[in-house]
């Protein structure tokens, strides 16, 4: 019958219209500024820099290796190395960035920087309400705007942050074990050397021989 298809369609629309008053599945609109959907844990937006501890400048994990700057597809990262060094989480002396800028108007949130970073220093944020009245300076984030604490990272991506912490702790333990082993080996070698030095030279006292005094 001509028109039956249209009637069928109208019934469907009516069912959806009436259904929207009673059925959760059919009323899907979220009144955005007033209500918000909870963010997914994996959701990502622009990157930020992670620091450990309380002092951001001291605890910044970034060592200014510039890998992310090189790999960033739209080239939105800009880094200048500092000449002064500071210890990282293992205790090794590392460089730090003097300038670390990200141009958000260029960044496309692809998270390649996060993947290539070998130091777990740069991670993705979930902040998305970043509109500003200044198109230029307002969207250029400096090191001071970018650094956020490890606690914040734990808050936004708990699973991922826990994994990262575990990995870092493991590396640290390994480094410590290695340092300890190294120290022991060194001590042992030194002891052996001393023993060797002690055996062939019949010294009456085990006291260390005084260094020969250089004469001018």
């Amino acid at each position: 019958m001509l028109g039956s298809g249209i009637i069928k369609g109208m019934v469907e629309t009516a069912r959806n219209f009436v259904g929207s008053y009673i059925d959760e599945n059919r009323l899907v609109t979220v009144e955005y500024p007033e209500e918000r959907l909870p963010l997914k844990e994996a959701s990502r937006n622009f990157p930020f820099l992670v620091y450990d501890g309380d002092d951001a400048a001291k605890g910044l994990r970034c060592v200014a290796c510039q890998i992310c700057e090189k790999e960033c597809p739209p080239q939105c990262i800009y880094i200048i190395k500092d000449t002064a060094k500071k210890p990282d989480y293992i205790g090794k002396m590392q460089l730090q960035p003097k300038v670390f800028d990200i141009d958000l108007s260029v960044c496309m949130s692809c998270q390649i920087c996060v993947e290539v970073c070998p130091f777990e220093a740069i991670k993705m944020d979930t902040e998305y309400e970043l509109s500003t009245s200044d198109r230029f300076e307002g969207l250029l984030l400096h090191k001071e705007d970018l650094w956020k604490s490890n606690q914040y990272y734990h808050k936004i991506h708990p699973t991922e942050a826990a994994e990262v912490d575990a990995r870092l702790a493991e590396e640290k333990a390994k480094a410590e074990a290695k340092a300890k082993a190294d120290a022991e080996a060194k001590a042992k070698a030194a002891a052996e050397a001393r023993a060797k030095a002690a055996v062939p030279v019949p010294a009456p006292t085990p006291s260390p021989t005084p260094q020969p005094v250089k004469t001018a």
């Binding site: 939105c76 800009y78 300038v99 800028d101 141009d103 108007s105 260029v106 230029f136 969207l139 250029l140």
Partner: peptide, 15 residues
Amino acid sequence: PTPHDEVLGRAKEHY
């Protein structure tokens, strides 16, 4: 002129 380039120029002068 993006601020990035400006910063780049300024930074190069400055550092």
